[in-house]
């Protein structure tokens, strides 16, 4: 069990992570998503992006990790819903913040967001955590 406070309005511990220059290559291999916008700088620029961008599902995995670390393990995460906005980039810190909205029947509903360079890259996200 975790010592995290799961009362409504409580903030869960913040997660901060800086994806290094080659993170998107490792994640491509691990996930099987080799879309060149994530791993090929020239291709990304040709299609109008500033450069290689993070996989949205990697960023979602950081949101998930913030929840499981707060709740004491992977068993606690029952559901996660996110909207992707904008785009994340390598070599800049990503911060996940989470706030408990309500607790009912041993399930905490948590509002969470991932930000980078002052903008949300995942927003309107909700996690359900077993805390009973």
């Amino acid at each position: 069990m975790s010592e995290t406070d799961f009362t409504p309005g409580a903030a869960l511990p913040e997660l901060k992570v800086t994806p290094d220059r080659f993170l998107t290559v490792r994640y491509a291999g691990a996930s099987g998503d080799f879309n060149p916008i994530h791993i090929d700088e020239e291709f990304a620029k040709q299609v109008g992006l500033p450069g290689r961008i993070l996989h949205g599902l990697w960023t979602m995995a950081q949101v998930a990790r913030a929840q499981t670390e707060a709740a004491g393990g992977p068993h606690a995460l029952k559901a996660l819903e996110v909207q992707f906005r904008g785009m994340g980039v390598p070599e800049a810190e990503v911060t996940v913040t989470s706030t408990v909205r309500e607790v009912s029947a041993g399930i905490a509903s948590v509002d969470t967001v991932a930000e980078q360079n002052g903008a949300a890259i995942i927003r309107n996200a909700t996690a359900e955590l077993a805390v009973g």
Binding site: V47, G56, L57, M60, P74, H75, L77, K78, A79, L80, E81, V82, Q83, F84
Partner: peptide, 16 residues
């Protein structure tokens, strides 16, 4: 595909 973006994602999990 040239115009596709991943807009949203939801997962609900059972046993690990």
């Amino acid at each position: 595909f040239a115009r596709m973006v991943h807009g949203g994602q939801q997962f609900r999990w059972g046993p690990l």
